[in-house]
Amino acid sequence: MVNDIKQLMHEKLDGVLSDDLTEELYQHLARDEEAAQEYARLETLDNVLASAPHARAPQRLAITIMARLAQAIEIQAKLNEAPAEVRQAIMASLSLSILSMMPLMVAASWLVTNSMANPSLLVRVLERVIALMRLMIDAQLILLEEIERIAKDDPITAAAALALMPSMMLGLLDSIEGQSVTSSNAEANE
């Protein structure tokens, strides 16, 4: 089926087709049984979607939203009142977390550059690097979600937990490195 006719069908269903082009579409559909069937199929689906109701929110939801907002504002106020040293600790630990990723980025770049002459090796290297980076990012997201949860009740403790993040990330890197060495040794012994 010609793509132009399909385009006209969709535009007709979206209510944006001019009268002239609508007439052209109908004339084509009157001549072409296959196209007519296709249009009927799309029209059926369109009617099903157009008849779908709106899901209504639970009655308590608006109240819950305002309660959560009030809590968030209270937590923010507590954080703003936190001693300057705590705020500096948060900034320093966030910076150190990012810096701890730097050796990994440099090593990954070196690996990729040195693998470019060997396509199959390059593919394997890229897969490992992407998997490792994904793991690091997921781990940071999980840690940040946990800290956010702690922060709702105790922002000061959350700030202290945040300061431990660089150590946690380095620990994770060590454990991954240990697993890689173990699996490489296992492969070598096979």
């Binding site: 109908y26 559909l29 009157a30 007519a36 069937q37 249009y39 009927a40 199929r41 029209e43 059926t44």
Partner: peptide, 9 residues
Amino acid sequence: PRSVNPRLR
């Protein structure tokens, strides 16, 4: 087959 809009016929 689906019923086709009579106008199309």
